[in-house]
């Protein structure tokens, strides 16, 4: 489904140059739940940005369904992101003046509101549909961000520390949830520093200083 070939990403130039992702190759199949495990600063977020086409690599290629993302026009990549990918950001930014349902449907057609309500219900946010982000707890906001990534039923979900600010019970639930989503023929790539969650994944990679370890 997604293949990366010798991916590298460096930030800055000269003295301050920093290689956040270093020659990473990875192959993710349909239905897989891939977890990328690593400490803070190891390059997890950066790798997810590359795989999802949010950033262009300094070198190497990313293929989605056999098509090279770096060979496409920016608008084509944007279209793939819009239709096929869902992203849970580490900082789950919600738009302050929009309600929970509207935040879930952000950038999408009005008609998805029904599905957004169902998702919020499943994520134990029933009754909070009309709440503004300022009226939600940190963990509740995180769950709204999860729903936002799922609302259009993407082929691939990229989840950057989706469990960072929720209790372990809810963390387990979110992972369970993502695992079910993969079971239904979708794909999930999740970054986390919490090795406890590794049991939910079908494949686990460790990452350290931009180097990806082998799959376990």
């Amino acid at each position: 489904m997604i293949t990366a070939d010798n991916l590298s990403l460096s930030y800055g130039q000269g003295q301050t140059r920093c290689l956040a992702v270093n020659a990473v190759s990875i192959k993710v199949e349909r239905g897989e739940f891939v977890m990328i495990l690593g400490p803070s600063g190891s390059g997890k977020s950066s790798l997810l940005y590359l795989l999802s086409g949010l950033r262009s690599p300094s070198s190497g290629n990313v293929f989605y369904l056999g098509r090279d993302l770096s060979g496409m026009r920016a608008s084509e990549v944007a279209r793939i992101r819009y239709e096929c990918f869902g992203f849970i950001f580490q900082q789950h930014f919600l738009v302050p003046y929009l309600t929970a349902v509207e935040n879930v449907c952000m950038g999408r057609k009005d008609a998805l509101k029904y599905r957004a309500r169902v998702l919020l219900h499943q994520l134990h946010l029933a009754g909070k549909e009309k709440a503004l982000p300022s009226e939600l707890s940190y963990g509740q906001r995180q769950r709204v961000a999860v729903a936002r990534a799922l609302v259009h039923e993407p082929q691939v979900i990229f989840a950057d520390e989706p469990t960072a600010s929720v209790d372990s019970e809810l963390a387990a639930e979110i992972c369970d949830w993502l695992r079910q989503y993969c079971g239904a023929g979708h794909t999930c790539i999740m970054a986390t520093h919490d090795s406890q969650l590794a049991k939910y994944a079908s494949t686990v990679y460790s990452i350290r200083d931009g180097h990806l370890g082998s799959a376990t």
Binding site: A74, S75, I80, F85, F87, F93, M106, G107
Partner: peptide
């Protein structure tokens, strides 16, 4: 700008 950034990340084009 964060709102626009989010829309861009979701896949809306600059245009």
């Amino acid at each position: 700008m964060k709102e626009y950034g989010l829309l861009a990340a979701i896949g809306l084009t600059p245009t």
